[in-house]
C-alpha cells in the first residue's frame, strides 16, 4: 500500500527545476517504480519458492493433481494476458490525447481484471468444496497465500486504473504527464508476468 503511494510522488518536478534532467533520462517516478518492482520480484519469488517446496509436502489431500483444471485456468490467464494489450492501448491513446478512447481501454483493463478475479474466485470455491482450505495442508496454505497475494495485486491495479480513468476524464493527465499511466501500466504488466510464472509453475508443471 505504501508502495502505491510512493509511485504517486510527483514524477518530473525535480527535473523541471534543475537545468539538467535526471542522470539516466528516466524520470524518478519511473525509475523508483522499477526499483519497487525489483523488490516485488523477491516478494513473489519467495512466495513461489515456498509453494514449490510445499506443494509436495501435504500429508492429506486434496493434492494438486486432484484439483487443477487447466482449461479453466487457461481461460482466466488468457483474459489477463489480453488486459495487458488493453493497457498498452490505453497508454497509446493518452499519448495521443484521445481521452475518451484511453478511458475506454482503461475500463477494458478493469473489466478483464474483474473477469480474471471472478473466474479465479470460482475455482477457489470449487477447491474449498473439495476440502482444500488455508489450514488443510501445506499445499493449501502456500497455494492460497501465493495466489491470494497475486489477486490482491490485481485488485489494487484495478482500483489504480479506475482512478487514472477519472483523472483522465478530469483532464488532469495530458500527454506530458503520461508517465502516470505508463507506470500504472508497468505495474499491470508486472502483475501479468507474475501470473504467467505462477500459471507455469503452479498449474502447468505437474
Amino acid at each position: 500500500m505504501a508502495h502505491t503511494a510512493a509511485v504517486h510522488d510527483s514524477p518530473d518536478a525535480h527535473a523541471s527545476h534543475d537545468a539538467h534532467a535526471t542522470n539516466t533520462g528516466i524520470s524518478n517516478f519511473k525509475l523508483g517504480f522499477w526499483t519497487f518492482l525489483a523488490s516485488e520480484c523477491l516478494f513473489f519469488g519467495t512466495l513461489i519458492s515456498t509453494y514449490m517446496v510445499y506443494k509436495g509436502s501435504a500429508i492429506v489431500g486434496p493434492y494438486p493433481a486432484d484439483l487443477f483444471d487447466i482449461l479453466h485456468t487457461t481461460l482466466s490467464t488468457t483474459i489477463l494476458l489480453f488486459s495487458s494489450l488493453a493497457m498498452v492501448l490505453a497508454l497509446h491513446y493518452v499519448h495521443e490525447a484521445k481521452r475518451n478512447v484511453a478511458i475506454g481501454w482503461l475500463f477494458a483493463v478493469i473489466a478483464m481484471g474483474g473477469a480474471f478475479l471472478y473466474l479465479e474466485f470460482q475455482s477457489y470455491l470449487k477447491y474449498i468444496g473439495y476440502g482444500l482450505t488455508l489450514g488443510s495442508s501445506t499445499f493449501g496454505s502456500s497455494y492460497y497465500v501465493l495466489t491470494g497475494t497475486h489477486k490482491a495485486h490485481v485488485a489494487v491495479g484495478m482500483i489504480w486504473m479506475a482512478i487514472l480513468a477519472w483523472r483522465i476524464h478530469q483532464g488532469k493527465i495530458p500527454p506530458s504527464k503520461s508517465d502516470q499511466v505508463e507506470v500504472a501500466g508497468l505495474y499491470w504488466h508486472f502483475v501479468d508476468i507474475i501470473w504467467i510464472v505462477i500459471f507455469t509453475l503452479v498449474y502447468l508443471i505437474p
Binding site: T35, F36, A38, S39, E40, L42, F43, T46, L47, T50, Y54, L134, G135, S136, S137, T138, G140, S141, S142, Y144, V145, T149
Partner: peptide
C-alpha cells in the same frame, strides 16, 4: 534493503496467517 526485506515480509506474512487464520506453514 529492497531485496532482503521482501523475504522477511513473506515470512512474517506466513507467520501471521498461521497465528491468525489457521494456515499450517
Amino acid at each position: 534493503l529492497i531485496t532482503a526485506i521482501p523475504v522477511i515480509a513473506v515470512a512474517l506474512i506466513f507467520l501471521g496467517f498461521d497465528r491468525t487464520f489457521g494456515s499450517v506453514f
